[in-house]
């Protein structure tokens, strides 16, 4: 259980960093002098959305493995 809590914290940290990326992008756009400054958001936000999916998928992977390990442990008992 302790191991899973650590993994949960890791996933939470990843999601937090992802949100911070989105914040930094939003903060940068009005500071840019280029005529196409909004394109930074149009390019980077979809990438962050994909990254969000990858992190959620990783959480699912951890859950699946923890459940499998617990089942194996129960079977051994």
């Amino acid at each position: 259980m302790k191991e899973f809590t650590l993994k949960k914290i890791f996933v939470w940290l990843m999601l937090t960093i992802n949100l911070l990326f989105a914040f930094v992008i939003g903060l940068t756009i009005p500071l840019l002098e280029s005529e196409s400054n909004f394109n930074l958001g149009f390019v980077m936000i979809p990438l962050l959305v994909i990254l969000n999916y990858v992190i959620v998928d990783r959480y699912h992977y951890y859950l699946k493995h923890t459940k499998r390990n617990e089942e194996e442990l129960d079977a051994n008992i």
């Binding site: 940068t28 840019l32 002098e33 280029s34 400054n37 394109n39 930074l40």
Partner: peptide, 10 residues
């Protein structure tokens, strides 16, 4: 492409 030259600026 010119529309992505925000990268140059950064």
């Amino acid at each position: 492409w010119e529309a992505q030259f925000w990268l140059h600026e950064i």
